[in-house]
Design a protein around this nucleic acid. Structure first.
Length: 238
DNA sequence: AACCAGGACGTGA
DNA sequence: TCACGTCATGGT
């Protein structure tokens, strides 16, 4: 990776934010019930809260974020939102209820986001862990030790669920940095993560917004195999 | 009608 | 370590 990446990464952030505006991650259900909120809508999905980094407001919202982080593994968010709504309708968006839930019902709720057999197990494992945590903040190592929690999910949980400055690296981020010539395809997850964390201030709001912007940008230009256009070039000019 | 999405795990070299 | 197969539904 390049040594000038530090300056570039902050510059790129400003360009992305300027282009797409604040993304309001992590999306949550029922924001209208949280006093004074005016949730925005993106496509068929609502629950975003641009420029409001105050979430989660309680343990229930935190659990919802963690569940969403697991369900969104290799799945599109609208499908995950369906699952969250189904879980909510069965009162399963709660660690104790989830643990005690009938397996068939749990899988039925998860089905829209795919891999429902694996994800049902992942959610049960996590729900147990979450319950035992009480009000503590989990370490990254603890999260990674759980079956079903890999590096990206762990970082999502830490960053969006617990407000810890842990940068999230996803497939879009790698494709983008690769196109920018900042990393090579064989850079490991932790290498890319550390690149961001060593180049930027350890600022939770910045990390939350940056990752969301990279996903938004990635969806537009790095979705299909012959990647839309040379975004790297565009970024340098804008 | 293929192709892919805000990955992670198990296996065998 | 690492490349590769598996898991699965819904949208484009």
């Amino acid at each position: 990776m390049k040594k000038c990446a530090a300056k570039d990464l902050m510059q790129i952030y400003r360009l992305l934010l300027d282009r797409y505006g604040p993304q309001g991650w992590w999306p949550l259900l029922h924001l209208h019930e949280v006093n004074g909120m005016n949730p925005t809508k993106t496509g068929s999905v609502n629950g975003y809260h641009p420029n409001d980094f105050s979430f989660p407001h309680n343990s229930r919202q935190r659990f919802e974020i963690c569940v969403g982080a697991i369900l969104t593994q290799n799945a599109a968010w609208p499908n995950v939102e369906q699952s969250l709504i189904l879980l909510e309708s069965k009162d399963l968006l709660d660690p104790e209820e989830m643990i005690g839930a009938d397996d068939g019902i749990l899988k039925e709720c998860i089905r829209p986001s795919g891999y429902y057999n694996q994800k049902a197990k992942k959610l049960r494992v996590f729900a147990q862990f979450y319950l035992a945590l009480k009000d503590d903040v989990p370490s990254r190592e603890e999260l990674l030790s759980l079956w079903g929690i890999g590096p990206e999910t762990a970082d999502c949980i830490l960053l969006y669920g617990y407000g810890m400055p842990s940068f999230v690296v996803d497939a879009y981020t790698r494709r983008f940095l690769e196109a920018m010539g900042i990393i090579t395809e064989k850079a490991s997850y932790d290498e890319v993560k550390k690149l961001f964390e060593s180049s930027l201030d350890l600022n939770v709001n910045l990390f939350q917004e940056y990752h969301a912007l990279l996903v938004e940008h990635g969806k537009r230009f790095y979705s299909k195999k012959p990647y839309g256009c040379d975004v790297a070039g565009n970024m340098e000019k804008l």
